[in-house]
Amino acid sequence: MASTFKKETFREDYTYSNSAEAIKRFPFPFPEDQYMYSVNIEPHVKGKVGSVCEFTFDVDEHYVAECLDKKITLEQDPGRYQALPHMMDAQWDFLELTMESLSQDYPQHFSLNKNGSVWTWENKPLGIKDTFTFGDSSTLAMEPFDYMGRQVQGDFVLLDHREETLFADAGIVTSQADWSLAFNVGMSWREWHGPVPRATELGVMDRALKHLLNLQFGSPVRRLNWTMTINPRLDTSPENYPQWGGDRNAVNADNVSDLVHLRVELQTLFRLPRSNAIMFSIRCYLINLKDLSTYSRWAKRLHRVQKTMHPDLIEYKGMTKFHPLVVDWLAKFDDGAALDVGTHAE
């Protein structure tokens, strides 16, 4: 866990970078040489010390810069935060879960003091200190989900559980891999997963839904998802497509390892107690190919995964244009020797 927070940007001059420590703890998502869409859900239990799963929510060296980038996106487009009226209980559940976890896991940065229902929250890195009444929205400057959603890295969607499915009825989404909250809000599970190629045929989505409907309070789960992004840009939203879509044309053999970033999403799902809703969090980690190749094992594995990728998935992930350049650049690391199963760096 970082004790200092970097000053960096995720837009325009893109000063974002990973320290050696951040590279080493990067959540590399490929345990095998071939990739196929799967449910790959596991319990969100404490991971190794220093890993991105050590705590309920990972706060790393990018924390302050990421929260600032989130603020800029929300100012430019307030529609990135949406909450339907029946989700107010879930909003307070979210506030409680984030405040309790952060203050417990990072006492040097966050503190929560409760005096009955009057709570005082302090966030030192962002310079926030507020006292409010739990359950009374009028005592906070904004809705509780908006308030805490801005103070945790990643995107959050609150899913209402009804009619044997899940509805995306609230969200704060500023670092999405080309999907729109405004478009998906109020949609059911099958509606928002409709476009995923090959997954529906495999029955993956139905099995995942069944699993999630039985998700229990106190037993959260996680999975990794991934794509590739040009430049370390968090806000790759369809709304701002003109600002980033064209960057794919700038990739060439000379700059591919600087421009192309592996974008890994650590997705976690928690049953919330008061509302019976489910919190879905999507935390984005970015690393360029050059930094990733610090560990030759990762470079080799990524080469094999990309070389054997199904064209439908390459297209779905928006990588068609630059994908051959990625495979070519990675090829030089691959000596063809067998790799054992697992995502470890060394």
Partner: peptide
């Protein structure tokens, strides 16, 4: 006892 589970929740809408 287990953690609470809800299979009989109110329809919030």
């Amino acid at each position: 006892i287990t953690y609470p589970v809800n299979l009989f929740s109110l329809a919030k809408k």
